[in-house]
Design a protein around this nucleic acid. Structure first.
Lengths: 340, 340
DNA sequence: TGAAATATCCAAAGCGCTTTGAAAAGAATT
DNA sequence: AATTCTTTTCAAAGCGCTTTGGATATTTCA
């Protein structure tokens, strides 16, 4: 069933049917009702391709998924973020288009998407220092918003968590419990959020005149395995830390495993504060949090990103919208006073 | 840059340019080379919408994500599956279209996608008993393949793991270690795979003349929390089991937490065999598996589903392609002889 | 009642591509 | 050299929609 057929059935021109469907005022309420009823009856829906071609808007938002760096992106974070974002798009009639690439051709993918006219806007994930994607998207004039921040320029739209502040808080929380030697287990240090978390951690220590010990600061892929291995290393030190700030729930699972195998009780012999993205699948407890954490819902971030992007699509030449979310400190059972 | 502009630049008709680009034989190699060079130079890519409209093929595969049932779908499994599938599509020039819906209108969403002409085929996830989606898609004539199986009819394309066999193996492994009382912690019992796993488990017990005790069989959402709670319940029984077969890694993390808090050593005091989807993000160990598991890569399943779907799109009226994958039993450190 | 204003509708063009059917050019055959 | 057969190219139609500009019907006002 297409427009032509529907208008034939109704004995009305395509123009009028189209207008009736799209809510234009120059059509009487009587015929509009007729049209709407017929459309529903015959289950008519406008062909999106034809619509896109005629209007010049594709009504699609693009996501680019890098394939090679599996751990960083292809993770539960992505799913939750996407769910939040897509949900928001949907309300405005936008669809979601996924494009996979290897890391090298990622920027190229944005260029292609634009050339092919398949999206009206895109979201940039996991920005790095001076991320080239930002430059390219600006050059193309394709609306975009960054989830996170790309250190370097600052004139673009983004939604980010205040990572620095979150990790200052996390570290302070442990310091207040009397911990003096606190490790950091963090994400890959090319990524902006990891850099900021490193900063927050060191900042908090400096503020209490505690020397930074780089041998208990770790940056890598945020896997369970890395959390596990790192914790074993830490415990094997001659002067092991009594606590750690850990950048994700997945890492923390590895930390807990290592502690368990070493016979240490979490929250008693060793304290852990994590950053909790509040993933719907991997919840940090239900009513009661398990790990003490700085929590910030990634799904909510997805919703905000989407909202901003839709706004930017509507009105492209507006000043940068920059949203900073504050993580909330929640206390679980993974922290306790420093052992004496 | 569009076809018209490009052909103007070249001084060649649109027809010839289009043919040159699409590899048709009725164009000389000389002009083809010219066209290709110019296209690359001006970064020309055909507008997908126009192409789709002209050809009647959208070159898009649809995924429907139910929103309300967060745990079951919006999880790492989905990400990995999608990555595998999308990777395969991409090789054939297909894009991925994501549609979110609440659970109730899920079938409706497939209908809409088809009416709007936005996809050439779809994948059905997490089938239930006599899943209505299968019926609808057949009625629409929209190519589809099911990931998993929808008990009931059997004349459709699917890719599935041999869940029954996997759980027979898992249970037997524990039985061989001398465990007599083995719990089952499994997914929601409306889902086909959970039903089959239940069958496999009971089958193995029956084969050894062990009575089925429904009070140590659990079906629900496969969350860490459910794993944790269930294990605490099991340990509180007057006659607690000495082992469990667990349907996912996430569940098993909860099981391990409960064991740890109860002072039980996993693989010594209590054995656990899991089903491991080999997720790229949540790996069950690296070189050495942590949990003893029946492993079957969900990403691989995604690739296979995609391959089948592309094949079906090309040749819609073929006999059902039905792929059954066998899970591989891998031995980790979560299992040991039954305590005496 | 007639002119002006307004409300309703429609025919046709155009979005950027593919593809048919025909024409032009070149090669092969007599 | 004239004819036939291939190869190469092109003009134009069509995919299903939106939208412009104009036509027709209806209402309003003098």
């Amino acid at each position: 069933m297409n427009l032509k057929q529907l208008s034939n059935i109704l004995g009305i021109s395509q123009t009028t049917v189209s207008r009736a469907l799209n809510g234009y005022p120059e059509v009487s309420e009587k015929t509009r009702a007729l049209v709407l009823a017929a459309a529903k009856k015959h289950n008519y829906m406008p062909n999106t391709k034809a619509q896109a071609l005629a209007t010049g808007k594709s009504k699609m938002i693009g996501f680019v998924l890098p394939l090679s760096s599996q751990h960083e992106i292809l993770n539960p974070i992505f799913g939750d973020f996407l769910a939040g974002a897509a949900q928001t798009y949907k309300q405005e009639g936008y669809d979601t288009n996924l494009a996979l690439t290897d890391n090298e051709t990622q920027a190229e993918t944005y260029r292609d998407m634009h050339a092919k006219g398949s999206v009206d806007g895109v979201i940039v994930q996991a920005p790095r220092e001076n991320d080239e994607r930002v430059a390219i998207l600006k050059e193309l004039g394709l609306p975009f918003v960054v989830h996170g921040r790309a250190t370097g320029s600052n004139d673009y739209h983004y939604v980010d968590v205040n990572n620095t502040h979150a990790f200052i808080n996390a570290t302070n929380f442990l310091l207040d419990l009397g911990h003096k030697r606190i490790a950091l287990i963090n994400g890959n240090e090319e990524l902006d959020f990891a850099i900021r978390r490193n900063h927050g951690y060191t900042q908090a220590l400096k503020d209490r005149d505690i020397d930074i010990d780089h041998s208990i600061m770790f940056n890598s892929e945020m896997t369970e395995h890395f959390g596990y291995e790192t914790t074993l290393k830490l415990l094997a030190l001659e002067n092991p830390p009594t606590a750690a700030v850990v950048s994700s729930y997945a890492l923390a699972i590895g930390v807990r495993r290592a502690l368990g195998e070493s016979g240490l009780r979490i929250g008693k012999d060793f304290s852990v504060v994590i950053h909790d993205d509040d993933l719907s699948y991997l919840r940090n407890g239900e009513a009661q949090p398990v790990f003490t954490a700085t929590r910030s819902s990634i799904r909510h971030a997805g919703q905000l990103c989407a909202k901003v992007l839709l706004d930017v699509i509507k009105n492209p030449s507006q000043p940068p919208q920059q949203v900073i979310l504050e993580a909330q400190l929640i206390v679980g059972s993974s922290t306790g006073p420093a052992p004496t």
